[in-house]
Structure formats: C-alpha cells, structure tokens
C-alpha cells in the first residue's frame, strides 16, 4: 500500500518512517512525502495510480490541506483516493469543513499511530 504524506514539517517524514519501520521493512506500506499541497498535486499527477491513501496536514504554507483535499476529490474520481486529514486544529469547524469537502477521515495531532494503524488495518 502506498501512502502519500503531505506535511510541511520535515520531521514528519522521519516520524512516519520510524513509526512504520517494521511495516516498511516487511513491504506492507510504502511512503511518499510532500512538504506542500503543490508538491502533493505534482506527485499525484506523475504517479496517479500509485497512492492509495493520502494523509495530509491542513495548516501549511501556500496551499492548505483543505484546498488540496478539494482539488483531489474534484480531479481524481476513479479510483477515488482515500484522503485522511491530520491536523493540530481539532475544532469542529475544521472537522466539518473537511468532511464536507469529502475527507474520508480526520485525525488530530499528536498523531496516535496505534489508532492510525488500526484504521489502515495493518
């Protein structure tokens, strides 16, 4: 399973690699990273069948996570990528907006990786 993580914090990449190091080692998941919405879209354009799951931050410089979500859901109908939002903003507004724009799930920071793994069923 290929997962695209979109976050402006570079440490996120290290964190994901370390958290999923067993799964990566066993070849269950494969990660791709983007540090902005723009880069995420660029990646999706190039490898658009690869990423099955997109995990995106909301608060990023430039394109925000919600804008990215909207673009993805608008552009890529088949197969519909699963988009999960991961954000420090855990308020209802953000949640509602994300859901309205078609987010499949909504996780808050600090990320509970056990819960995330459950959701990914790995």
């Amino acid at each position: 399973m290929k997962i695209l993580v979109v976050d402006d914090e570079l440490d996120m990449q290290t964190l994901f690699r370390q958290r999923f190091r067993k799964e990566i080692r066993e070849g269950i998941v494969e990660f791709a990273f983007a540090v902005s919405g723009e880069m995420a879209l660029e990646y999706l354009n190039k490898n658009h069948h690869e990423a099955v799951l997109i995990l995106s931050d909301i608060n990023m410089p430039g394109m925000s996570g919600l804008q990215l979500l909207e673009k993805i859901k608008h552009k890529y109908h088949t197969p519909p990528p699963i988009v999960m939002m991961i954000t420090a903003y855990s308020d209802q507004d953000n949640y509602n907006q994300a859901m309205k724009l078609g987010a499949d799930d909504f996780l808050t920071k600090p990320v509970d990786f056990t819960l995330l793994k459950e959701k990914l069923k790995i």
Binding site: E9, D11, Q18, T87, A88, Y89, D91, T108, P110, V111
Partner: peptide, 25 residues
C-alpha cells in the same frame, strides 16, 4: 488558542511520538 494549539500540538506531536519511538527503539 487555536494558533497556540496548532503551534504547540505540532512540537508535542514530535515529542510524544519520537519519545514513544525511542522507547520502541
């Protein structure tokens, strides 16, 4: 608060997760 939450949650995210990862490591 919202901003602070975000700004603090982000470092906390790393502090928590990295310390957990360190424990595993």
């Amino acid at each position: 608060t919202a901003g602070i939450a975000h700004e603090i949650q982000n470092p906390l995210n790393f502090v928590n997760n990295f310390s957990e990862v360190n424990k595993e490591l």
